[in-house]
């Protein structure tokens, strides 16, 4: 263990702990743009700079590990000026349309500009003639809002390991893109959406995110209902409707999702959903009350059980629904009906 002081507060950390991680332990807030859990430290945005006593320059806290006896200051005039200057440089090359940008309310650049007292951009770069790439079916890319933090590039290459995104161009013309300026639709992109989930601005944004703002929604942590990896995710809900999905840091997914988990949620509130019990009358399924439907079910099950015994009834439970539902189903078949003929589609 190492002894470290952060803003005068003494603490012990394991060897290999970064200054940023140590700051988190004592609740000292450090702004970050390129840093992301599960990715190797990047240290490129420089927003997380702090002062280390005895060091010549400010240190990038996400990529500097703690030393024995280190004394760290997380905010002073110099740090403030540095961070403010970084934001001003980023804003110089940023298409500012916060009124209509879908990321407004959760954009990190917007938040830090506010935090560091920036009222308008100090510098201005001539805008490039870059075009938006709106060819992916689920999300859009606007290079004019990109801050080159490389979160998307690193996620695509080191976490999804699909090697679609990279940086193209040089100097002021650098942007996130694909070889030969390919469009998303022509690339090997599998639409996992993980690049979108990690974008700190509105550069990569789902098409559906235009329909809501962060303050209009609630988020509910749940488990994905597609394959058996069991990814953790947040359902984003506006006015009783699921409008998006964001990955959460679960044991088995560590912040990743796939195209189904991220984007295939439209079945939830789909107009084709069953909304009322149906009973077949004169050969046609017709809407009835719950009472009537449940009576028809119970009467027929009882009749068949009386005529042919409980084993003339079988039940197929579901590998799609919850443990509790499955247990209840098994209890109904064995306890209430009296047969062991209960199965699920594990086999099919």
């Amino acid at each position: 263990m190492l002894n470290v002081t952060i803003d005068g507060q003494l603490l012990q950390v394991k060897e290999g702990t970064t200054i940023l991680e140590a700051c988190e332990l004592v609740g000292a807030e450090i702004p970050t743009l390129c840093h992301l859990k599960h990715l190797a430290p990047e240290g490129s945005c420089r927003m997380c700079v702090v002062e280390v006593k005895g060091a010549r320059d400010l240190k990038v806290s996400c990529a500097t590990v703690c030393d024995e006896g280190m004394e760290v200051v997380t905010m002073n005039e110099k740090i403030h000026a540095w961070r403010r200057f970084i934001i001003e440089m980023l804003l110089a090359d940023h298409h500012i349309d916060c009124f209509s940008c879908s990321d407004t309310g959760q954009c990190k650049l917007y938040q830090y500009a506010l935090d560091y007292g920036i009222k308008e951009p100090r510098f201005q770069v001539e805008p490039r003639d870059w075009e938006k790439d709106e060819t992916n079916r689920f999300f859009d890319y606007d290079p004019h809002k990109c801050i080159l933090c490389r979160r998307c590039v690193r996620t695509c290459n080191d976490r999804q390991v699909n090697h679609t995104l990279n940086l193209t161009g040089r100097g002021i013309d650098t942007k996130v893109g694909m070889p030969f300026d390919e469009l998303f639709i022509d690339s090997n992109c599998v639409s996992c959406g993980n690049c979108v989930s990690v974008c700190p601005t509105g550069a990569l944004a789902t098409k559906s995110s235009k329909d809501y703002r962060s303050w209009e929604v609630t988020k509910t942590r749940t488990t994905c209902s597609y394959c058996a990896v069991g990814c953790q995710m947040d359902l984003v809900v506006k006015k009783g409707k699921v409008v998006g999905v964001e990955p959460a840091d679960g044991h088995s997914n560590k912040g990743l999702l796939c195209v189904k988990g991220k984007f295939a949620y439209k079945f939830i509130g789909h107009p084709d959903r069953l909304t009322t019990p149906l009973v077949r009358k004169d050969g046609v399924l017709q809407p009835v009350s719950w009472d009537e439907a449940l009576d028809v079910v119970a009467d027929n099950l009882q009749r068949i059980k009386a005529e042919s015994g409980p084993d003339a009834i079988a039940g197929f439970s579901s590998s799609r629904t919850t443990n509790e539902d499955n247990y209840a189903f098994m209890k109904m078949m064995r306890g209430a009906i009296g047969t062991n003929s209960v199965d699920n589609c594990a086999r099919v």
Binding site: G230, G250, S252, P277, R280, V296, T321, N323
Partner: peptide
């Protein structure tokens, strides 16, 4: 003969158990 309308995973409380035997909340 009878169709009963159920809720989907986003509309209910419960748990799923993933492939690694981890019981997780819905």
């Amino acid at each position: 003969d009878v169709v009963l309308p159920a809720t989907c995973f986003a509309e209910k409380e419960g748990t799923f158990t993933n492939t690694e035997r981890r019981v997780q909340r819905v």
